[in-house]
Design a protein around this nucleic acid. Sequence first.
DNA 1: CTGAAACATGAACCAGTATTCAACTAGTAT
DNA 2: ATACTAGTTGAATACTGGTTCATGTTTCAG
Lengths: 196, 196
Amino acid sequence: MAVKAPRTERGRRTLRALLDAAAEEFGESGYHDAGIARIATRAGAAIGSFYTYFDSKEAIFRALVADMSRQVRETVAPVILAAPDRLSGEQAGIAAFLRFVRQHKALYRIIDESAFVAPDAYRHHYESIAEGYAASLVQAFGAGEISEGAMQVRAWAIMGMNVFLGLRFGVWDDDADPEAVAAAAAELISEGLRAR
Amino acid sequence: MAVKAPRTERGRRTLRALLDAAAEEFGESGYHDAGIARIATRAGAAIGSFYTYFDSKEAIFRALVADMSRQVRETVAPVILAAPDRLSGEQAGIAAFLRFVRQHKALYRIIDESAFVAPDAYRHHYESIAEGYAASLVQAFGAGEISEGAMQVRAWAIMGMNVFLGLRFGVWDDDADPEAVAAAAAELISEGLRAR
DNA sequence: CTGAAACATGAACCAGTATTCAACTAGTAT
DNA sequence: ATACTAGTTGAATACTGGTTCATGTTTCAG
């Protein structure tokens, strides 16, 4: 088993501390330069305790990816769903995503790096988002809100947009106004570039 | 110096062979699992010869990123410029990019991984593309082809779309028709999602 | 209280691999 | 021909850092 479940309260605390410490360490140093010893130290635990809960460096990394994947979806999805229609939801979703990225830069890096450390986890993350996204596009089409088109392609295109905007205006640049970026992006998605 | 210039024809051949071998090795195994010894073997050279031309593993990786960054731009940019207008150029550009990715999956992976191995190189790659992209959008706006809007944001958004479509329909999925994907994406960029 | 299971500890181990280096060969200019 | 420079070689080195493990401590059910 990659991750061993603790049986006491003390164990749960240590496990939680290790996960939090790992998020910081991986986020700051990247997978390669992150060290088990440093993760343990950050968590106020010994190296041996690390191996009480995780089989390997990769195991804790995968656990983190799953954890964050869930966090992103649980943060953004409700915001989109709360909107009155798909297109206004778009803007709210992008803004929510940008704010999330700002507050969790480390986590964002980790998901990106999973493309190389744990490709299957990475793929699963984006495929599950794309699936939900495509489904909601189909629904919006049914409601007459959006035009006909290849929803799979659209879902991936919009996801890529979000990810790059998150990188550029969330991780790299702290000053840009998330709402303004989201507005420009949402307008692109809704109306396209063509002059009217 | 990170990369030492050869002084003879023989040296240039070896350097070239090492770069090609490194592209294969990094592409197949990723930065971490790639080995200098294996790169040298693939190139038909000795380990020592590797260090005749490159200071370190990271040095050859950076050299590759720069090399590929150039290749991508030199492949896609002319296709876009050859188009009669910005919007039809968009579709041609996406299709060209998808085809490029298919033919150079390894290279594509390397640029992506540079985000973690050589963040400055990664940033430089996308910033230089975004810059050219934004400039051409401004020009298209001047020509009355596209609407007003934040060109920086648009450039990054469209770049992100391309990258994700490249990943999903270029690297992961060989079967999808690049032209069809490009058409759907270009239509999204030009017209947006809104039903008319 | 008591014993067993869960948990904690960190020095030591060891595998993998980037890098060095001293001896050698090929090429070239004078 | 000679000498000098560029290029080649791969075993040995050096070092990093993930993982193991024997020993000690805490928790808690009965």
